[in-house]
Amino acid sequence: LRLEVKLGQGCFGEVWMGTWNGTTRVAIKTLKPGTMSPEAFLQEAQVMKKLRHEKLVQLYAVVSEEPIYIVTEYMSKGSLLDFLKGETGKYLRLPQLVDMAAQIASGMAYVERMNYVHRDLRAANILVGENLVCKVADFGLARLIEDNEYTARQGAKFPIKWTAPEAALYGRFTIKSDVWSFGILLTELTTKGRVPYPGMVNREVLDQVERGYRMPCPPECPESLHDLMCQCWRKEPEERPTFEYLQAFL
């Protein structure tokens, strides 16, 4: 395994491009020591290896001592969030954005069929390849993070704006909380990567959403798509659509 080009840095580690087995181009995620327990990670990795779908980033291998390494397929255009905010983002029109959403829903419909939960679905965790191919990455890892700023769910590192209220408040993460996050991801797509709930801080978002506030229809977004977002944001988790439905609708 060779680490060649550093692609990015996040709160919990770095991402590199490299070569595996001398020939395969891969992405390598390294986790800061202390982010998660190697034992817990190894268990999760076994499950992650079983998830194989064309719209999920394929896991190739893991190094399960500290520092933990995760070796996955390489996606040339990086994260969907950076892609939307970058040069190419300007030229993306609604049909392409909807197609990308459908690809993500397709990957998540598979996660749904496998009775698995992602827990951290957002544009930053979707990767883009050639020809606007989108794949879901980092599934299941969020559960293992041991950082206090994260586990408190009120901490600075927790993605509260993407998280369903029952998950943020009571830790009830299910495929239905993933559906909520998918609704937020749809706003990221239609606004080219704007942060959700602009002008609001995490605490406010939690309070307002509890009181029934939902983001309005983004500019140039059809009402039918906003309606779909609002279905994803129904207060009762069981009233939210399935990913199978979302995939078919898109």
Rank of each mutant, 00 (worst) to 15 (best):
Q154R: 10
E54W: 12
I184Y: 09
T35D: 07
R25Q: 09
Q9V: 05
W233S: 08
T187K: 04
C230T: 08
E39K: 09
G129S: 13
W162L: 01
F83C: 11
Y213A: 06
T35I: 04
P222S: 07
E149I: 13
L185H: 05
T174V: 15
L84W: 07
Q103P: 03
Q208G: 10
L51F: 07
V117C: 10
E4T: 15
K32E: 01
E238R: 13
N115P: 10
K161W: 00
E204T: 14
R113P: 03
L56F: 04
L94V: 07
I70R: 01
T187G: 07
E66I: 15
R240Y: 00
V201L: 08
M48V: 00
T30I: 04
F83L: 09
T174K: 14
Q9G: 05
Y150A: 02
L169G: 09
V26R: 09
A109H: 13
G155N: 07
T174P: 05
F12T: 01
K176W: 09
T191Q: 09
K135P: 02
E244W: 13
V117P: 01
M48W: 00
E244F: 10
H226A: 10
R113S: 12
T88K: 11
D207Y: 10
G155K: 03
E14Q: 15
H226Y: 04
V111Q: 04
R153V: 06
I104L: 05
P33E: 13
Q96S: 11
S37W: 06
Q103M: 08
L186V: 06
A45T: 03
G171C: 07
L42E: 04
V136Q: 02
A156C: 07
G22H: 11
Y69C: 06
G107T: 03
R214G: 03
R143V: 04
T35H: 11
E66M: 15
G212E: 06
E223K: 13
P165T: 14
A102R: 14
H118G: 00
A124F: 01
D138W: 01
F249G: 06
C11S: 05
F182V: 06
D227V: 12
I70E: 02
P198L: 08
P33A: 11
Q208V: 14
Y170A: 06
T24K: 14
M108A: 15
P237C: 11
M114I: 04
V5K: 13
Q103A: 11
K85F: 12
S181C: 06
V133P: 05
V62I: 04
P216Y: 08
E44M: 00
A45Y: 03
P67S: 04
T19W: 12
Y245V: 12
Q208H: 10
L59N: 02
P95Q: 07
H118Q: 04
T35C: 06
E54I: 11
L80A: 14
D138N: 00
F249K: 06
C232T: 10
L141I: 02
L51W: 00
E87F: 13
E54P: 13
F243H: 12
K85I: 12
R25N: 13
Q43W: 05
A45F: 01
W20I: 14
E220Y: 11
K32V: 08
L51A: 01
K235V: 11
T187E: 07
E149D: 06
A164M: 01
A61N: 09
K50S: 11
G78V: 02
W180E: 03
